[in-house]
Computed example of a mutant assay.
Amino acid sequence: MTYCVAMRLDAGLVFLSDSRTNAGVDHVGTFRKMNVFEAPGERLMVLMTAGNLSISQSVRQIIAEHTTSDGKSIWNVSSMYEAAQVVGEAIRMVHERDAGTLEQFGIDFNVSMVFGGQIKGERCRLFQMYSAGNFIESQDENTYFQIGESKYGKPIIDRVVTPDTPLDEAAKCALISMDSTLRSNISVGLPLDLLIYETDKLTVTRFVTIDEHNQYFQMIRNTWAKQLKTVFESISDPVWNAAPETTSNVLSSQGHKNQPLRILPPAQFGIDKTVSAPGPLQTLAQDESNSNNQQH
């Protein structure tokens, strides 16, 4: 599997991808999933891929070399929307050529991509591509796209990133998102490729490949883990069966009538189905009262 995330911000674009393609017990594969199409000063486009590796590599090759029937290529179109159409056509070409044969071997045509960048004369744009060659574009209400194992790293991005987030802050958030994914899923792995693109530069401005020895990423991993634990421990435990006005931590209100859905044993098992009524639950107010009595 994989995990890739891209963000479209007022200041530019952030792209981050892992490199794990196989996580078998005795076979771990590593392939880079970020591809940069660059004509410095004129256009800069980035493609990240997830899914079947052979399909994504075929699509990448066609994108780099193919010209459509009406003469369009990613190298000469005037907008990122047209470039995304070229990418979509490349996906459909590979599907038409290979999908039937793959199906005979029980292999689904499975590929997803994030494609973004800037062409001179227009703003930065970001697209998520699907297996059918169709796509959607990032808007201010949805500033990022993820592909692959996206669920682990999504919450931090939802809470932090907005269109006006600075690029370095967004990159930090992307790396924390990746660390959360690495922590929870063995099918995502190092090294990582991180590319930060500043609006109107029309060339790669910052890029790094991150391995297990990278100083900043190690700091993020250690600091994030410690800070999460500190925040967790600072949150009070729940209070049961207390009056809401007693404390702000009431989980179960005093005198509540909630009960679990109980399933009783069938009669043939001869089990006593009498449910003993629980004794009175001690409340926070009672705890404080007892404490005061003891002090007197």
Rank of each mutant, 00 (worst) to 15 (best):
Y3A: 12
A6C: 11
L13E: 05
S19Y: 05
A23W: 12
H27W: 12
V28K: 13
V28S: 11
F31P: 00
R32A: 09
R32F: 10
K33P: 03
F37M: 11
A39R: 12
E42G: 01
R43T: 10
R43F: 05
M45G: 01
V46Y: 05
L47V: 05
L47H: 03
A50P: 03
G51L: 04
I55H: 10
I62L: 15
T67H: 10
S69N: 12
S73W: 10
W75E: 08
A83M: 08
A83V: 08
V87L: 10
G88N: 03
R92V: 05
V94W: 01
H95Q: 13
E96N: 14
E96R: 12
R97D: 12
D98I: 01
L102T: 06
L102D: 05
F105K: 06
G106N: 04
G106Y: 03
F109G: 07
M113Y: 12
V114R: 02
G116Q: 03
G117R: 02
I119Y: 02
G121K: 07
E122G: 11
R123M: 05
C124D: 09
L126V: 04
G133C: 02
I136C: 09
I136W: 01
Q146V: 02
G153K: 10
G153C: 10
P155I: 07
V161W: 08
T162I: 14
A171W: 05
K172E: 15
A174Y: 03
A174R: 02
I176L: 11
S177C: 11
S184V: 01
V188C: 09
L190H: 06
P191E: 06
L194P: 02
L195K: 03
E198D: 09
D200M: 06
D200V: 02
T203S: 09
V204P: 03
V204C: 06
R206Y: 13
F207P: 00
H213A: 10
H213M: 09
Q215R: 14
Y216H: 14
Y216R: 12
M219R: 13
N222W: 01
W224Y: 15
T230W: 07
D237L: 15
V239Q: 11
V239S: 08
W240H: 14
N241P: 00
T247E: 07
T247W: 10
V250A: 11
L251T: 08
G255Y: 10
H256F: 10
Q259S: 14
Q259V: 15
P265F: 12
P265K: 12
P265H: 12
P266K: 13
Q268V: 13
F269C: 07
I271M: 13
I271P: 07
D272Y: 07
S276F: 07
P278V: 13
G279P: 08
P280Q: 14
L284G: 00
A285E: 15
A285W: 03
D287M: 15
N290P: 00
S291E: 15
N292V: 15
N293C: 10
Q294W: 11
H296R: 15
